[in-house]
Simulated scan of single mutants.
Amino acid sequence: MSSTIGLSTYSFFWQWHPTAVEPISLDTMLERTAAHGVTLFQICDYPLIESLDLAAVKATADRLGITLELGTRGIFEAHLTKYLDIAVALGASVVRSMFNTATHRPTLDEAVESLKSGISAYEAAGVTLALETYEQVPTPTVVAAVEAVNSPNLGICLDPANSVAALEHPRDTVERCAPYVKNIHVKDFSFTRKDGWVGFTLAGCPMGEGLLDYDHMIDTVRPAERGVNQIIEHWVPWQGDPQTTQQLEDRWTEHNLNYLRSRK
Score class of each variant (00 low, 15 high):
residue 230 Q to I: 04
residue 174 V to H: 02
residue 199 G to L: 10
residue 207 M to K: 01
residue 146 V to H: 04
residue 220 T to P: 08
residue 158 L to H: 03
residue 195 D to G: 14
residue 139 T to W: 00
residue 103 T to D: 13
residue 197 W to K: 12
residue 202 L to A: 08
residue 223 P to V: 10
residue 163 S to R: 09
residue 123 E to V: 10
residue 205 C to G: 06
residue 95 V to A: 12
residue 142 V to K: 01
residue 101 T to D: 12
residue 208 G to Y: 01
residue 149 V to L: 03
residue 229 N to V: 08
residue 169 H to V: 08
residue 154 L to K: 01
residue 158 L to Y: 03
residue 191 F to S: 11
residue 155 G to Y: 02
residue 104 H to P: 00
residue 118 G to D: 02
residue 221 V to L: 07
residue 208 G to C: 08
residue 94 V to L: 08
residue 182 K to G: 13
residue 136 Q to M: 10
residue 217 M to F: 07
residue 179 P to S: 12
residue 130 A to L: 11
residue 102 A to N: 13
residue 164 V to P: 06
residue 188 D to W: 07
residue 116 K to P: 03
residue 126 G to F: 05
residue 164 V to E: 05
residue 132 E to C: 11
residue 173 T to V: 15
residue 222 R to S: 08
residue 223 P to I: 09
residue 196 G to C: 11
residue 227 G to Y: 08
residue 112 V to H: 02
residue 186 V to Q: 02
residue 102 A to W: 06
residue 164 V to W: 01
residue 103 T to Y: 11
residue 139 T to D: 13
residue 224 A to T: 12
residue 113 E to I: 07
residue 185 H to Y: 15
residue 199 G to R: 07
residue 103 T to S: 10
residue 139 T to A: 03
residue 115 L to M: 04
residue 226 R to G: 08
residue 175 E to T: 12
residue 101 T to I: 11
residue 141 T to E: 13
residue 96 R to V: 15
residue 170 P to R: 01
residue 200 F to P: 00
residue 176 R to E: 10
residue 90 L to V: 06
residue 183 N to L: 15
residue 148 A to Y: 00
residue 156 I to E: 07
residue 98 M to V: 08
residue 150 N to G: 07
residue 94 V to P: 03
